[in-house]
Design a protein around this nucleic acid. Structure first.
Length: 254
DNA sequence: CGTAATACG
């Protein structure tokens, strides 16, 4: 089973820059998307295509903001939107597809760079998400992918020193990823690659991408019950169209 | 610099 995650930074924009060609060639069973920026009611513009069915969670509080979704060719048992905690509903940040073998969660975690209020919201979202994942995990294993908006270690961004006070590499944000992994969620990419220089996001400014001045902030984590099933995890850094690139996971479900 | 609406990342 092949899974993908991609922060597309506007589905309308990437649709004109090869998104559906990428999906068709991806061999993906489920592709989770973040920052779709589709408004409520406009989901029909991005319907079934090439054997894939879509599901979207739009932001209901800001036009053209946030939003997550998925294209899948394997039908889920159930579909849910957003976290149960009412403080963290409405921005279109979580899509949950339930499959027989696991819960598939795709998430766009808040960006904390706009100010203290948004950093507080991000940290609160992290805690509420962990509680929700732990609750779901009581029934079956978890696969979670998406834009976590935090680089975990010094290996996960080009310039760790100069970003120690930047949201996305703050000690408290990194400490939450420590806590998350301590609960038994495995960073799948790191099962296969321990070196630095592997990134999933590059600033549009300063020719950051051509210079590979990037951050690894898009991840696949699995709860450790699934760790023996992880066959492959990778970063598709050659795929353009967004300031993020896709990441992939292959599971051997036997 | 870029998306999509004039804010946000």
């Amino acid at each position: 089973m092949i899974l993908h995650s991609w922060n597309v930074n506007g589905l309308r924009a990437v649709a004109g820059k090869g998104f559906f060609e990428w999906l068709s060639a991806s061999d993906s069973d489920v592709a989770g998307l973040q920052e779709t920026k589709i408004q409520p009611g406009h989901e029909a513009d991005f319907g079934e295509v090439q054997g894939y069915r879509p599901s979207f969670v739009s932001c209901t509080v800001k036009k053209g903001y946030s939003g997550v979704g998925a294209y899948y060719r394997r039908e889920p048992l159930a579909v849910n939107a957003e976290l149960p905690d009412p403080r963290f509903r409405g921005e279109g940040r979580l899509l949950h597809l339930e499959y027989p073998e696991f819960h598939f969660l795709t998430v766009y975690f808040p960006n904390g760079q706009r100010g203290q209020d948004r950093l507080d919201y991000k940290m609160g979202y992290y805690e509420a998400f962990l509680a929700h994942a732990q609750e779901l995990r009581r029934t079956k294993p978890i696969v979670v992918c998406g834009d976590f908006n935090t680089a975990h270690t010094e290996l996960d961004l080009k310039n760790p020193k100069s970003n120690e006070k930047t949201s996305g590499f703050l000690p408290e944000e990194r400490a939450w990823l420590d806590r998350f992994t301590a609960h038994g969620y495995v960073d799948c990419f790191r099962l296969f690659e321990q070196g630095g220089g592997h990134y999933t996001w590059w600033d549009y400014r300063f020719q950051a991408r051509s210079r590979n001045v990037g951050w690894r902030i898009d991840y696949f984590y699995v709860s450790d019950e699934l760790r023996p099933r992880v066959k492959r995890a990778w970063i598709e850094s050659q795929v353009t169209g967004s300031d993020h690139c896709p990441v992939g996971l292959e599971l051997d479900l036997g």
